[in-house]
Design a binder for these strands. Structure first.
Length: 814
DNA sequence: CTTGTGTCTGTTTTT
DNA sequence: CAGACACAAG
């Protein structure tokens, strides 16, 4: 999405957009891009490779359609997956044309659904101020349902069940559409049904529900369907390869049958960058689209404006190993550039150190830190790298993890705000009824929940059913919330939040807490976020009235004003404009916000490969190229999983503009255990000519074997702590490694490589050796032979250790 | 109702 | 190793 600063100004692709004439708009487009942008009405599929100017094509297409008068802003719908992508599109578009982007429907799938459901909330059977459950909320709601149904949580695991429900919705399925095939799925189906009832009662929807309900509303109401189908003459979809079944059906619903509605869908995607199958993405939607919409031709954007040749060669060669592809090869005019620097380290620690060294070298050459990114497969890998960077005083920024609106203190404050709008929101009620504590304990809440369940009412409505002290406290709590609602009536959003933070007792609570300072700051930041939201969304004195829909006879006809972009459409029937508070709460749910405030600071960027999709950097480090990690062991058993891992690797490689670094290590600390890793098969799949090995290839024996061996170096307990097993995944015996029972594992067959290790090791008593962790030592004793060989080594200040020769990595020193 | 202890479980993530 | 969570004791 960020397609600015390109290698050494070699390319003119990302220069300033031309002046607002179509000739200016189209200037600098290559033939394929031009064909895509100026394609005639009708379905179109753009296969856009990484760095091929995808976003530019998408936005220029919209600008061109508008400028040539083929469509009015109201006839455009552009859908993305992330808020970031939607914003980027809007920003670029307003840079190209002096148009008001507000009449267009540009946003994320969920943002547009929200807009739609707010406008038609009566038809959808929702309160106007319906609240949106995020994943956390959804999970706790499901958990509550499982408890209420008295299901065994061992059998009907809440996490799996909430995943099950989300998946069903992504597939467009209601509880009644499911056919249970065993006890578990029968239970899950029941939970789904009860969960759905509960959400409906509380007036809340989860992410999947936003999509599904919009889809169903369109499906079940012909007049609505016809209206929107007629209205959106051009539907543009970004990252089409990431759409799930429901989203594709949703798109078809809005597009209608092209020959009838005349609408055209402009789908842009890259099957090679499909990395979200695990959450329901169907790459197959691309070929389905091509077939079902009778796409006359697929335009391939293969000219890359981002990376140098070696990098692209690596990407192309790698991805060519995937069998199920639409087929595409990236090319560049930029020259080969530097080869990819490949480094093998003895340990994850040494690997991190190497990254720090390389980064410092780049700094010495005058490159800013923000142009360096360290990418890894899983979040757990960031720790070592962080500590190495920290120790070297190199600023860094980690992406991922807890986002702003997901922080506990922020969610607490939001829960109070939600209760002001909708006291029947049980999820919010449960979150803060006793936070800060006000004498409402578990048994009180149990009584309350029982009463609510019995009558089918909300917790808020059921407090009279609880007598005694607990009941009084509950009444006091309801009164507190009522009081807040009264006190904040007519206040600005900022004032509302300030009041609630104080009146709820949250502020006092955190003021007294030792570690509360940061939380207080986050609450202050929440006020800022609200302030920024109000300014940005244009609430306040001079909101401009815009006709939303000009189509005569439509449901939405004559709507008064779209005060703000997506979140604040007026009610379709009453024309009442949603309060800034509801809009802000929606914003908080749909846009979890960045996780770190310190933006703009020059720092090395650390993130998972998934998080890096759509980004680009001059210098990229791909770390942890080890079997079991990347490709991840959970994905490498089936062909589809492996291909997805390869696409992930492809995404990682294509993030780099100028120089790419890849690294792996022989030992890695994971879950408190040392793992021995083989280098990733993906390294072997890269063209040799594009690589520059900084360490000798296949050096030592650590890189070639013993994937799953527990290190045997704990001294003192002698052989009892030595563990060896066949080629089992390490995780199968984590705990037992500490018990004497594991001793018997030593009898398991050992691979040939281990026997070789001994002879190659060529150790003798008195031999000097090097060990990754303990450093230099001297061999004191040799025992056993072959797979059973063990050795006693004196490591000086680290003491004397018994090591399993087949497991510990010892390098002889002459 | 709070606090401490023990157990468990560890991909990827937007909305 | 470390965070989340459940349960028992105070």
């Amino acid at each position: 999405m960020t397609a600015h600063s390109t290698p050494a100004g070699l390319f003119d692709q990302h220069g300033q957009p031309g002046e607002p004439h179509s000739s200016g708009l189209l200037k600098g487009l290559n033939p394929e891009q031009l064909a895509a942008v100026t394609a005639p009405q009708g379905p179109l599929l753009i296969l856009a490779g990484a760095g091929s100017g995808k976003t530019r094509v998408l936005t220029t297409r919209i600008a061109w359609l508008l400028q040539t008068g083929q469509v009015s802003p109201a006839g455009i719908m552009a859908v993305t997956f992330t808020n970031k992508a939607a914003k980027e599109m809007l920003t670029r578009l307003s840079g190209m044309l002096p148009i008001n982007t507000r009449g267009m429907w540009i946003g994320t799938f969920h943002g547009l659904c929200n807009r739609f459901l707010r406008a038609h909330h009566k038809l959808a059977g929702l309160p106007q101020a319906f609240q949106i459950l995020d994943t956390q909320d959804q999970f706790s709601a499901v958990k509550r349902v499982i408890k209420a149904l008295n299901f065994d949580e061992e059998r009907c695991v809440p996490k799996q069940t909430s995943w099950f429900i989300a998946n069903a919705k992504d597939d467009g399925k209601r509880p009644g559409d499911l056919v249970p095939h065993d006890d578990l799925s029968r239970m899950q189906q029941q939970v789904y049904q009860a969960y759905e009832d509960q959400c409906q009662r509380e007036g809340v929807v989860d992410f999947g529900e936003l999509m599904l309900r919009t889809y169903e509303l369109m499906r079940d109401h012909p007049e609505l369907r016809e209206h929107y189908q007629r209205r959106f003459r051009h539907i543009l979809v970004d990252e089409f390869q990431d759409t799930n079944r429901l989203q594709y059906a949703w798109l078809k619903m809005f597009a209608g049958r092209p020959e009838v509605t005349g609408s055209s869908v402009f789908a842009v995607g890259d099957d090679d960058q499909s990395i979200y199958a695990f959450r329901g993405a169907q790459v197959g939607n691309m070929s389905d689209f091509e077939r079902e919409f009778k796409v006359p031709r697929v335009i391939k954007l293969e000219q890359n404006y981002r990376s140098y040749g070696h990098i692209l060669d690596a990407a192309n060669t790698l991805i060519a190993q995937n069998t199920r592809r639409l087929g595409k090869n990236l090319r560049t005019d930029a020259g080969q550039g530097e080869p990819i620097r490949v480094h093998e380290a003895a340990s994850d620690y040494a690997d991190a150190q190497w990254i720090v060294d390389e980064a410092r070298q780049l700094v010495r050459e005058g490159h800013p830190l923000r142009e360096m990114a360290v990418l890894y497969r899983s979040n757990a890998q960031s720790r070592v790298i962080e500590s190495a960077l920290f120790n070297a005083a190199v600023p860094y920024k980690v992406y991922g993890g807890l986002r702003f609106f997901e922080r506990a203190e922020v969610k607490h404050a939001l829960a109070y705000l939600r209760l002001i709008e909708n006291p029947n929101d049980d999820t919010s009620y449960l979150r803060v009824v006793n936070f800060p504590t006000r004498g409402i304990g578990a048994r009180t809440m149990e009584q309350l929940q029982d009463a609510a369940r019995a009558t089918g009412r909300s917790l808020w409505q059921s407090i009279a059913a609880v007598s005694g002290k607990g009941g009084n406290n509950l009444a006091a709590f309801n009164k507190l919330v009522d009081g807040m609602r009264e006190a904040t009536r007519g206040l600005t959003l900022r004032e509302i939040i300030e009041h609630v933070v104080e009146a709820s007792g949250l502020a006092d609570f955190y003021r007294l807490e030792k570690e509360g300072q940061e939380r207080l700051e986050n609450l202050a930041e929440l006020v800022n976020a609200a302030e920024a939201f109000v300014t940005q969304e244009g609430f306040g004195k001079d909101a401009v009235a815009l006709p939303v829909d000009e189509t005569p006879g439509s449901i939405a006809e004559g709507l008064p004003a779209a005060v703000a972009q997506v979140n604040t459409l007026p009610d379709a029937e009453t024309g009442e404009i949603i309060s800034p508070l509801v809009a802000f709460l929606t914003h908080a749910a749909l846009e979890a916000g960045d996780n770190q405030a310190q933006a703009g600071q020059d720092a090395v960027q650390l993130m998972t490969v998934h998080a890096a999709k759509g980004l680009e950097f001059d210098y990229v480090f791909i770390t942890g190229l080890e079997e079991g990690l990347f490709p991840h062991e959970n994905s490498m058993n089936d062909a589809d999983g492996l291909e997805e891992e390869r696409r992930l690797m492809y995404v990682a490689i294509t993030r780099a503009r100028k120089r790419l670094h890849m690294s792996f290590c022989q030992t890695r600390m994971l879950h408190g255990q040392t793992r021995y890793n083989i280098k990733s098969r993906f390294l072997d799949e890269l063209p040799e000519a594009a690589l520059k090995w900084l360490t000798p290839r296949n050096q030592g024996f650590g890189s070639g074997f013993a994937k799953s061996y527990q290190d045997a170096w704990s001294s003192g307990r002698g052989m009892g702590s030595m563990v060896g097993a066949g080629a089992q995944p390490y995780r199968q015996w984590g705990g037992s490694a500490r018990s004497e029972d594991s001793f018997k594992d030593l009898t398991a067959p050992l691979p040939k490589a281990m026997a070789q290790a001994k002879s190659e090791g060529g150790l003798r008593v008195g031999q000097s050796v090097f060990h990754n962790k303990f450093g230099e030592g001297v061999v004191l004793t040799l025992e056993g032979s072959g797979a059973d060989a063990r050795v006693q080594v004196n490591f000086g200040r680290h003491g004397t250790k018994w090591l399993m020769l087949s497991v510990a990595k010892l390098t002889p020193i002459e």
